[in-house]
Design a protein around this nucleic acid. Structure first.
Lengths: 340, 340
DNA sequence: ATCGATAATCGAACCGGTTCGATATATTTT
DNA sequence: AAAATATATCGAACCGGTTCGATTATCGAT
């Protein structure tokens, strides 16, 4: 249907291989005369090389795959999208296409893996795999380059890019402690996410390092969503006054927004009576009824680095990285020293 | 490196073509005996057919491309993401991979088009192309199936999927008029987006159909962002009391949120003093300080239908569709009859 | 002029599948 | 039992590029 390299060769009265050399600038020299002729016919015939044929013979599709499972049915969450944004940027800059794969259920991803791991993509970026995830071993077994955006697995030699979850939580807890809070509740996210135990650990360590008594009852398990934050906050409000926390340290912004709603519903003033912190610094942080003090994750950079590391690995780099990108506390209006 | 169909053929003591017939269930019959043998060796050798080779010979990659330019540097906006979500769902259901392409500048997309239009994707879904966009004609010239998610172009035979922008705006304006508002300002989005003139037209028609005098000065141009809404709302507040609108009909939720902030900053009560409506029903609508009455667009369905139409077209369907999916007004707390 | 070295070009094989014409085998018909 | 038909399998060509060994043209040095 469309013009092929053979058409081009015939029309330019040269061999197909020569045309290929011209189009790729090598690997062999072509005389100036012929080069120009070929280029001219290519333009005239509106020739565009077929990426699939090219990919087959070069064993390189210049395509990166992104794998993601959403926890509760939404790819639309800011976390994934911003990382994807970074990945896309990187891919564009390096002339790579980006192919997406998602599924509600992680096991389905593993089943459908063959769709990816079959030459279509040169490598895979796996975003936020749940704790129980065997995909990576499948991939390495099949010699498919991959990178995870997640905390490093203890026993894995797969490179990873992420923030330092423990440190980040440590810092924001410390921030609250420095404000003078003593009774702080941590509103946690899903237990099967790797970030959860790490953030809890950071929270705990901030307490012990500060020499404060850590009251275990103030670690509230939940999930990374608005509803969970709402419910957990209500629980906190129902505690007897002397046990009620003066600050809620939330494991992400959605939880914090939910908590905010609960507090406002009960007429509790933020930050005057209770301080609230978010995590992720999504747009929610700034548009919340009380703009949230939050931990900014460099999502874009995370995605970018993941793509770059993957690309390096595809190009033969064997080294093992596990990058931890710095986070930053963004102060807004939801935190203040405790009352009195 | 990895096992090929030839390895499989040798190991099963049959020809490669027979293996192919087994793996694809056709197009020719294979004896039960051989079928099972091949399947067994395939499993044993952990064989996965190479999608690229397959794609080359079948001229079909089972991949749909999604093209998008973000207005102001963010792919992360809810509009695109939710549509993408619908597309992904459809693709998964139909065994298609999804490849993404974005760029800040639309012209860059046109340049890089060859990356897509070269066999890698079987067709393209173009999301929200700006008014001045020549990509589609390039594509049709090169015989590449495509669908736009956008209002239909007057002179185009490319199928499209979208809401009825004019009708939707008509309805929400009517809703405000029915509440008793007479002085309503429309806070518009970008002028180079196709939706803008259509929504304005809907706004106008609602006025004229209701027999109200339409005051042209209440159509405020701007862009689809928070900041624009903020600024436009301030302008409204600065109008002399008798010309000040009692309702702000915003062209999207971001604008409405910005407007809300301006109003709250000036101590204007919503909805008691001024009603505000959004458009799109993004999460912003429900999490805004005053939950917004908004127009819900069926983003997921839009994406889904776009993918399905594209798939049909790829499979040879020549018919021309331009689907307009129904919208729905979601009432929340930001609207009420005008004061007194 | 002749020879060797270098540069430019060609032809064929290959990447890993699919598909079609031809052949071999099994089944039915007469 | 032979002929006609249906079924199962093979081999080769093809998809549209890249790459490598071999061949030819070009050039400077002797």
């Amino acid at each position: 249907m469309s013009t092929t390299i053979k058409d081009l060769a015939r029309e330019s009265a040269v061999s197909a291989s020569t045309v290929s050399y011209v189009l790729n600038n090598g690997p062999r020299p072509v005389s100036r005369h012929i080069r120009e002729k070929v280029l001219a016919t290519a333009a005239r015939m509106n020739y565009h090389p077929n990426a699939v044929a090219r990919g087959l013979s070069r064993k390189r599709m210049d395509t990166l795959g992104v794998v993601y499972t959403y926890w509760d049915a939404e790819i639309t969450d800011y976390y994934f999208i911003s990382i994807l944004h970074g990945i896309l940027g990187s891919c564009m800059r390096h002339g790579q296409a980006t192919t997406l794969f998602t599924s509600h259920v992680w096991s389905k991803v593993e089943d459908d893996l063959s769709l990816f791991a079959n030459g279509r993509c040169d490598g895979l970026i796996i975003v936020a795999p749940p704790l129980s995830c065997t995909v990576m071993s499948l991939l390495t077994a099949r010699n498919i380059p991959c990178i995870v955006v997640s905390d490093t697995l203890p026993d894995s030699d797969i490179s990873s890019v992420n923030i330092d979850n423990q440190l980040a939580m440590y810092q924001i807890t410390q921030y609250l402690l420095d404000l003078g809070h003593q009774r702080i509740a941590m509103l946690c996210g899903d237990n099967d996410q790797r970030s959860t135990p790490l953030r809890i650990e950071g929270f705990r360590r901030a307490f012990s390092d500060a020499g404060h008594n850590e009251d275990k009852h103030l670690i509230i398990s939940g999930s990374y969503c608005f509803q969970s934050g709402y419910e957990s906050a209500l629980k906190m409000l129902d505690l007897p006054a002397k046990r009620r926390p003066t600050a809620l340290c939330c494991a992400n912004d959605a939880i914090a927004a939910g908590a905010l709603k609960a507090l406002m519903g009960r007429g509790v003033k933020v930050p005057e009576e209770i301080s609230v912190t978010g995590f992720d610094d999504t747009p929610l942080s700034s548009t919340a009824p009380v703009p949230l003090t939050s931990v900014r994750q460099p999502f874009g950079t995370i995605g970018m680095r993941a793509a770059e590391l993957l690309l390096a690995r595809i190009e033969g780099d064997q080294s093992h990285h596990s990058e931890q990108l710095p986070t930053e506390i963004v102060e807004r209006d939801s935190t203040a020293p405790p009352k009195k």
